[in-house]
Computed example of a mutant assay.
Amino acid sequence: MDYSLLVSRLGKQIRDKRVNRGLTQARLAELAGLTRQKVIAVEKGTLSVAMVAYARVLGALDCEFAVIPAAMPTLEELGDLFE
């Protein structure tokens, strides 16, 4: 499984959780002690973002990591890899 796809999925899950909670990126950044630009990078699944930024965002959302078997990529995800 391609690691960039896994990070992209994590970013999407974080964005979905933020939206479901009714938080703006700016408010989440404030809660996590990060800049809004860093939250944007986390939600995009940017590979250069440090693990601590992901952990701070998840903590601000009252969430944690869970290790589960990876699902096969969807056609949409495969297409995104080649953009």
Rank of each mutant, 00 (worst) to 15 (best):
M51Y: 04
A60G: 06
D62I: 00
A55I: 05
L58F: 07
F65Q: 02
L34R: 11
V52I: 10
Y54K: 01
V39K: 07
K38I: 14
L31H: 08
V19Y: 14
M51L: 09
D62R: 06
Y54P: 00
I40Y: 09
A41Y: 06
Y54F: 12
I40M: 07
I40L: 09
R27N: 13
V52R: 08
F65Y: 10
E30R: 09
A66S: 04
L28F: 11
G22T: 13
D62F: 01
V49T: 06
F65P: 02
R27Y: 12
V42S: 06
K38M: 15
R36H: 12
A41H: 07
A71W: 00
L47Y: 07
A41I: 03
A71I: 00
P69D: 04
A70F: 00
A70G: 01
A29M: 10
V57F: 04
A26M: 14
G59D: 12
L28E: 10
A50M: 09
A53K: 03
Y54L: 03
G33V: 11
V57P: 01
A60E: 04
V19K: 15
A66R: 05
R18E: 14
C63M: 09
L34N: 07
K38F: 08
G33T: 10
V49F: 01
F65D: 03
G45Y: 01
V49K: 02
P69W: 02
A50D: 12
E64V: 00
N20D: 14
I68F: 00
A55V: 06
D62N: 09
V57L: 02
G45Q: 01
A60P: 06
A26L: 15
R56L: 10
K44F: 03
A41G: 07
D62M: 02
G59F: 04
A66V: 05
M51R: 03
R27A: 14
E30G: 10
R36L: 12
A32I: 09
Y54C: 02
A66H: 03
T46C: 05
A29D: 10
K44L: 09
G59V: 04
K17P: 04
G22N: 14
D62P: 00
I40C: 07
M51F: 06
E30P: 09
A55F: 01
G22H: 13
G45R: 01
R27K: 15
L58T: 06
A50I: 05
V49Q: 02
A26E: 15
V67M: 03
A26Q: 15
K17A: 15
K44W: 03
V52W: 05
C63S: 08
I68H: 01
K44N: 11
K17N: 13
I40W: 07
Q25L: 11
A66N: 00
L58N: 06
L47I: 09
A70V: 01
T35M: 08
L23T: 11
L34C: 10
I40V: 13
R27D: 15
A41F: 06
L47Q: 13
G22L: 13
V42T: 06
A29F: 08
F65K: 03
K17E: 15
K17H: 15
V57I: 08
V42G: 04
V19S: 11
L31M: 12
G33K: 11
L61G: 04
R18S: 14
K38H: 13
V52H: 05
T24C: 11
A50S: 12
A66T: 03
L58R: 05
V42R: 04
A66F: 00
T24S: 15
V49H: 01
A41P: 01
E30S: 13
T46S: 10
A26N: 14
L47V: 09
